Simulated assay, not measured.
Amino acid sequence: MSSPNVLDPSIEAIRTEILALEDRRYDAVVDGDFDVFASLCHPDLTYSHSDGSRDTTDSYLRKCREKFYVYHRIDHPVTQVLVHGDTVVVVGEMNGSITANGVVKELANNSIAVWIRHEDAWKLLAYQPTPRR
């Protein structure tokens, strides 16, 4: 069985779409547009944090809306976008400035985001940051 051709136009189109969705989800939390963020999430989302805690879509959105998490700045360079059928894994970084439960923090994380096709749209299924320092 051969690997998908990196130059396959359909694979490249998926990569382009996923990168745009990654921009959109990060912009949404920085802008406080949690309805946009929610629209990008799979109902079974597992959202991990760099402190090891985890949230569901509902618990994460509740914390964001109640300002437990306030995102001031995020940059998210991407190293790889791995496309395998209806699953995409985005490997990269999440660096930012946030306030978490009233404490200002600078984040420097490696990260993995998993997107899947769900009801004819790409949805974020899982997110895992790992502190680099």
Rank of each mutant, 00 (worst) to 15 (best):
D86P: 04
I14R: 06
Y127P: 00
Y71C: 10
E93D: 12
T130L: 10
H42A: 09
P4E: 03
F68R: 13
R25C: 11
V30S: 07
V104E: 15
R25E: 11
C41I: 04
P131V: 07
A20F: 07
E93R: 15
H49M: 05
A113Q: 11
H42T: 12
D86V: 01
L45S: 03
Y127R: 12
S97K: 13
H72I: 14
S2I: 09
E119Q: 13
G92F: 02
V114Q: 02
D75C: 05
D23F: 12
R62Q: 13
I14N: 02
I14Q: 03
L125F: 07
V114G: 03
D8I: 00
T79F: 04
Y71V: 14
I11D: 01
L125R: 07
Y71M: 14
L125H: 08
T87F: 11
A38D: 14
V81F: 09
L125Y: 07
L82M: 07
M94Y: 05
R62W: 14
L61R: 01
L19W: 02
Q128V: 00
F34D: 09
L61T: 02
I74K: 12
A38I: 03
D58I: 01
A100N: 03
D8V: 02
L107Q: 13
R132T: 10
S48Q: 13
D23R: 15
I11Q: 09
R62E: 14
Q128H: 13
R65W: 12
V89Q: 10
L7H: 09
D75W: 04
H72L: 14
A28Y: 08
D31W: 08
L19G: 09
V83F: 09
A13C: 02
Y26F: 15
A113S: 15
R132A: 06
K123Q: 09
A20R: 12
Y127V: 11
I14W: 08
E66F: 06
E12L: 15
L7P: 00
A121L: 00
E12Q: 14
D75G: 08
S59H: 07
N109F: 02
N109Y: 03
L124V: 04
R25S: 10
A13S: 14
R133I: 02
E93G: 07
R62C: 13
K105F: 02
S50T: 15
E12R: 15
H76F: 14
S2D: 02
L61Y: 01
R117H: 00
E12Y: 00
I14E: 06
V70Q: 14
E106W: 05
R73T: 11
E106I: 08
G32D: 04
T79I: 11
T79G: 09
D120K: 07
W115Y: 13
Y69I: 08
T79N: 11
I112S: 15
R73F: 09
V103R: 12
P4C: 01
A121V: 01
P77R: 05
